[in-house]
Write a protein that binds this DNA or RNA. Structure first.
Length: 281
DNA sequence: CCCCAGTCCTGCGGGC
DNA sequence: TGCCCGCAGGACTGGG
């Protein structure tokens, strides 16, 4: 479930290998499962990017953007289980794609895209599409770049529960199911509160909590849940799962009030965790 | 605009 | 021991 912190960690992990390097080969890995979703096809992408230099590797919401000197970019969406690795992958079975690059030091290095469930995608974006990706429109402002005014606009635009609105990438981009619960708990906001009923005070708390939680999670290199799927670029677990306040902690005592058990409810077919004492409205 | 259910996919754990 | 089923959810789609 890579969300913003996990994708940021992946980007930081692969950046030293890729930035300033020249792409020598891009190959699909033999994989018994359904082939990787890659747009347009791999041969077409290879023709357009192999031989070119990678200028920057950056994150936009939950996507990895690999910029080329042509102005085009390879955009990787890890979705549920996709990983970008610079060291040996967990297994060969779910390897999908391998980049071979010539580092400025002349050394050949490799980066792998590994994806257990195969929901991840790789797409080549034209310069215009790259431009559109970074502007607000299709995707909302990046969760780490939200201003108070962005939060005001985002909240006033919908009557949906705030938890559901936080997951809508068209409103605010980068937050997924795990961090939405964490942010609302730190904000002391009930997840079912209609977004357009949040007070200025609550929106301020949400703005602060979003920055705090996401940066803290980045500092710990993301969350590796029980299934152990998420790994950083060196195939190591993240550490933030040990700091989760409510996510997947149904029945445990709330870390804020130390009195009430964490509840689990379902919103928009997804689990939400919260403290009924600390998050009343 | 809103909401829901279904789709992709694999691994895991519960129930029998 | 093994099998079936439901669940996990990010992004998207189609129907109401």
């Amino acid at each position: 479930m890579p969300e913003l912190p996990e994708v940021e960690t992946m980007v930081r992990g692969i950046r030293p290998t890729l930035e300033g390097a020249r792409l020598m080969a891009l190959e699909a890995c033999p994989c018994a499962c359904r082939p990787l979703t890659i747009r347009p096809g791999l041969p077409s992408i290879v023709r357009q990017v192999v031989g070119h230099a990678i200028t920057r590797v950056v994150r936009r919401a939950k996507r990895i953007v690999m910029q080329f000197d042509t102005g085009s970019a390879l955009v990787i969406e890890p979705r549920m289980t996709g990983l970008m690795l610079v060291s040996e992958p967990p297994n060969e079975t779910h390897l999908r794609l391998v980049w071979t690059v010539q580092h400025p030091s002349d050394e050949l290095r490799q980066v792998w895209f590994w994806d257990q469930r195969g929901l991840g995608t790789v797409s080549l974006y034209s310069p215009e599409e790259v431009d559109r990706l970074f502007r607000h429109g299709q995707l909302g402002p990046d969760a780490l770049e939200m201003t108070l005014d962005h939060w005001r606009v985002m909240c006033s635009a919908t009557h949906r529960p705030i938890k559901v609105a936080l997951l809508d990438q068209h409103r605010v981009a980068g937050i997924g199911n795990l961090y939405a619960s964490e942010i609302l708990h730190l904000s002391r906001i009930h997840p079912e509160t209609p977004a357009d009923e949040l007070t200025l005070h609550q929106r301020r708390r949400m703005a602060d909590s979003t920055t705090t939680i996401l940066n803290e999670a980045i500092r710990y290199e993301g969350s590796t849940l029980g299934d152990g799927t998420y790994r950083n670029a060196l195939n190591q677990s993240g550490g933030y799962q040990n700091s989760h306040r409510v996510y997947a902690r149904e029945g445990e005592t709330c870390p804020t009030c130390h009195r009430t058990a964490i509840l689990r409810i379902v919103q928009a077919q997804r689990s939400t965790f919260y403290c009924p004492r600390c998050q009343r409205s």
